[in-house]
Amino acid sequence: MFLKEYISDITGAVGSLLKGMRRTGYYFLHRGEAITQQYPDNRDHMGLPERFRGEVVMPHNEQNEHRCTGCTACELACPNGTIKVVTKFEVNAEGKRKKAVDRFIYHLELCTMCNLCIEACPTDAIKMAQHFEHSVYDRSQLTKILNRPESKLQDGVE
């Protein structure tokens, strides 16, 4: 009785081990199942989804115009002070003084990609880009000014 138990114990154990070995052996022979992505090589056809949040950018059109009115809604929405909007007063064609964005400072190193600034923006001036390779040698390079030099507010954006 004892011997029977002893032997069935051993055969059961060996059986379970062989089952595991069959599984790994299967993957050893079926190398097509490999899921490795050869990352730097597949950069061109990687294709990130359009909602992927890599960094905040401010799109400009061909006339070097953006849609940011300098309302600082994004600055208020940001939970960790990533965005600092420096405004200035511009005199427009009718001779009225109007608030406009001078420098849109974006601290990539503080950003957690929470998307709250984009949700908050009333004029869709900023959006998330899919670029994700942010590493640089100097931290100061991560502080970016999003509006290009000499750029203007697009007409019709209030």
């Binding site: 790994t24 052996g25 993957y27 050893f28 190398r31 199942e33 490999a34 899921i35 490795t36 050869q38």
Partner: peptide
């Protein structure tokens, strides 16, 4: 290599 193939890696 053996470990990689068993672990569905390259």
């Amino acid at each position: 290599k053996v470990s990689a193939f068993m672990q569905i890696r390259l």
